[in-house]
Design a protein around this nucleic acid. Structure first.
Lengths: 303, 303
DNA sequence: TAAAAATACTCCATAGGTATTTTAT
DNA sequence: ATAAAATACCTATGGAGTATTTTTA
């Protein structure tokens, strides 16, 4: 156990992060609203303490050293946890009060929010939900950086070491025009049935694209890349090929475009939608309650 | 992103922990080598910041409030990570330098250390190993509290969310006197063969006791409790019954007491010995190397 | 009343500011 | 020559000290 005062300050860590982000002492100092010498002095002190150069002051620019990268990472985590500590106190009275910053992926948001958001507002009237729609990778990064409190994603994607609560299983179906040969097939569609079919997919970075590729046993040689399921469906309706859709989207997408849908045979043809958050997030009790309501109000897809 | 200086200090967290441990402002102040008013002031400031009472200053004593318990937990974790950050810097040059505090459970230590410790000393001459022998629960707590850098435990026990590297699989065998009826059995021993046999076990808290109970499908109704495998073996040799032993201990224990051993049929009759550490421990590179050497030099039990 | 925490104030250590020098292109 | 970080030195905030009061069992 340590006995004296703690040898460094959270302020120093803020400086470390600012310099790592800006790669300039002067700009980092501006960002922290302190003078450049003050920041320099604090960093020198921290480097002295840890016994290693964190930054390489090179000709005309600043670089993070190998050892520094580790320190910077730790500093970021530490500050997120420090903020969490304050947040935990503030929320101790009523966690269902204030603002909850919640991420959601684009292949869920438009199909879930219209029905669920009003219900959440009714159920948690004193909680303001700030939604942010982005791809899984971006959301998880924001979560770890403390910019988001929670996110709705698919567990099949790469989401790292987070706490989670499962909301629903969402099956995938193949969507095609009524005239398409596969539309007449009565049994579920096998990956082999897709040989030769023009498969349309989402853009890189969408977890649903990766899952679709896996379900169809494809390597990703398809060339067209849509930025939303709606675009994808319009392409299919226009006769450009077939596509995979999550059942969640059917009520909105397939019905609207008058497409035919068929179940997939593969047991992998589904995603598990879950609410995830940083381990030990201060809002965990509130998040579990939120997850419960999401699970209850999740729209059952009409297959 | 925060812009101003960080609203609290690590020092304040140290005070929080000291008070939580001592349940007295005066004693906490002594422990921190500050005056009681200084400590009071800092705590008042922190409580003001988080907007919640952390401690209940009751008549004649101090209590941690419900909200406070969470804050205290977070404070402890934060300080461990802060220490890790400094340590990470210091070890950046050569992680295999200095002192490594390593925990080990009592059912491994006496059988592994005599052969392995000298090899580790030879392999890592500049690394001092400080061994601490205790039950799994105690070691894991010490690990999380930053009092240990790593520990050798069985994965089958409750070890929480730690990083790990597997060292070896260690089978369990049944040990008995030569005169015991089971000593004549040629096939592996089933749990059902143990009906009526007097099974001797270790004390509560030893993970090996819990595993033995599970392997033998027993509820723990046995009354004698040994504090070490050696005691257990002496009891068996004295005719008090039979016991389960890890193969690792055979070379020392069964041979010495001239006992007969028989394999167990259950696939559960083994433990997985692993080196574990806090996630993101600064010594991770060193620990992985250490694990490699442990794996290579692990004594192969002669069954 | 006694033991412990809170309050009142004083002080000084140190984070931070300004001015300047050094360094590297 | 110039742009950026380091150095020198001064200032002032706030953490820590001592003395004292308040609280409650």
């Amino acid at each position: 156990m340590r006995s004296g005062p703690h040898p460094f300050t959270l302020r120093q860590l803020q400086y470390v992060i600012a310099v790592a982000d800006e790669l300039s002492f002067r700009r980092a100092a501006e960002r922290c609203h302190v003078s450049q010498p003050s920041l320099s002095a604090q960093l020198a002190q921290l480097e002295e303490l840890v016994g290693v150069q964190i930054f390489e002051r090179d000709r005309r620019r600043v670089l993070v050293t190998a050892a520094g990268r580790d320190i910077v990472e730790r500093a970021r985590r530490l500050l997120v946890e420090a903020d969490d500590l304050v947040e935990a106190g503030k929320r101790a009275g009523d966690p269902l009060l204030g603002t909850l910053r919640i991420g959601i992926i684009p292949t869920i948001a438009p199909y879930l929010l219209p029905s669920v958001a009003p219900k959440l507002r009714a159920r948690f009237p004193r909680l303001t939900l700030a939604w942010r729609e982005d791809k899984t990778g971006v959301l998880i990064e924001a979560l770890e950086a403390g910019e988001l409190d929670t996110a709705l994603v698919a567990l099949e994607a790469e989401i790292g070491d987070v706490a989670r609560e499962i909301i629903a299983k969402d099956s995938f179906v193949l969507a095609m025009r009524l005239e398409h040969p596969l539309a007449r097939k009565s049994s579920p569609v096998e990956a082999s049935d897709l040989r030769g079919a023009e498969m349309l997919l989402l853009d890189d970075g969408h977890c649903f694209r990766d899952q679709a590729l896996e379900v169809c046993s494809m390597a990703g040689e398809c060339e067209f890349r849509a930025t939303s399921l709606t675009t994808l469906v319009q392409m299919v309706a226009g006769g450009a090929g077939v596509t995979l859709l999550p059942a969640l989207s059917l009520a909105t997408e397939a019905k609207r475009a008058r497409l035919r849908v068929r179940r997939m045979a593969s047991p992998k043809a589904h995603r598990t939608i879950a609410l995830v958050w940083r381990k030990r997030a201060p809002l965990e009790p509130a998040l579990r309650e939120l997850a419960g309501v999401l699970r209850e109000t999740f729209p059952v897809p009409a297959l």
